[in-house]
Structure formats: structure tokens, C-alpha cells
Nucleic acid binder design. Structure first.
Lengths: 67, 67
DNA sequence: TAAAAAAGTAAAGAGTTCTTTACTTTTATA
DNA sequence: TATAAAAGTAAAGAACTCTTTACTTTTTTA
């Protein structure tokens, strides 16, 4: 799954540390999500989307693979 | 976090087993999510919402608590 | 280009999501 | 009401999410 977290974070002029503080996770969590190491939990996906004022679908791109 | 999975599943006339098969998880996973034992992963939330033809926000209700 | 700031990464550990197996309880129907 | 179908639940284990600590690499700026 792809996401636009880095792009949206940079649009707000925040570095990973400030963004991590704002959404109350570690900086490593932000880095891991931005780099696609893993997806956030649904809860964290909501927190991130809410922070950006976007829907989850606008931030996280679920490419539905067929077979 | 609340969700409307049970309601939407029943609207389609599916029991937990048929629904679980359709979204490729175990019946226990469906039961656990419907009963709020845990939230689905973001990936599974997308699969469920897609199955219902809804957005994640329409299926999963993230009540943002301000302490 | 040297120093500082920002970001990448790794490993160990805690907690969460999901599976399988199996049994119990509830709900629907003959 | 007896049986069948549907749903609840529990436990052990695998895989994933997130934390802390700590170090390395990349990018920015003085």
C-alpha cells in the first residue's frame, strides 16, 4: 500500500520529529510508514488522516490487486 | 472505534462464515471485529470497505476523543 | 567544506491482529 | 421443543505494529 504521508507532512513544513510529536508516535514510526516498511494501524491511519484534514483514502492508496 | 460491519454484512444477507470466505479471513476474525475485540489492520479495513462499496470512514467510526 | 539538522536503520521487546482448533451458547426453524 | 445453523469464545502461536535506544547516512546551511 502506498501513502502520501511524506508529501503531506512536507506541505505543512514539518520534519519527521515535529510531525511524530503532533500525532503522538515515535519518529521511527513516521519514518517506517513513510518508507513503506509497514502500514499504520487503522487507529493511527485515522489520526494521520485527521491531522491532514483528509480522508484515509486520500492519504493511503490501497491498490486492489486482482489475483 | 465502532464499526458497521455486522449491519452491512446482514444487509447483504450473508452470515459470518460466507462473509469471512468472501474477504478471505477466518470467521473468528469477522466475529472479533464485529464485537469490537480488536480493530482490523488498515489493509483489512480497505478490503472490508471495498467489499461493501463504501469508504473506510463509512464503515469504521473513529470517535476522536479529546481527553 | 565543516558542522548541524534531518532522516535512515537495526535490534530487542511489548502489544495487537489474525490464524487454527475446538468447544459452548444463542438463534432460527422443523 | 428438539435439532440445526449461526455466532461467541478461548488458547496458543505466527506475523505485524510500535516503542526505546543508539548509531549511521544524507541533506541543509553557516
Amino acid at each position: 500500500m502506498e501513502n502520501r504521508v511524506e508529501e503531506m507532512r512536507k506541505n505543512l513544513g514539518l520534519n519527521q520529529e515535529a510531525f511524530a510529536r503532533a500525532i503522538k508516535v515515535s519518529r521511527q514510526t513516521v519514518s517506517s510508514i513513510e518508507n513503506g516498511k509497514y502500514n499504520p494501524s487503522l487507529e493511527l491511519a485515522f489520526v494521520i488522516a485527521d491531522f491532514f484534514g483528509k480522508s484515509i483514502e486520500e492519504v493511503f492508496i490501497h491498490e486492489k490487486r486482482k489475483e
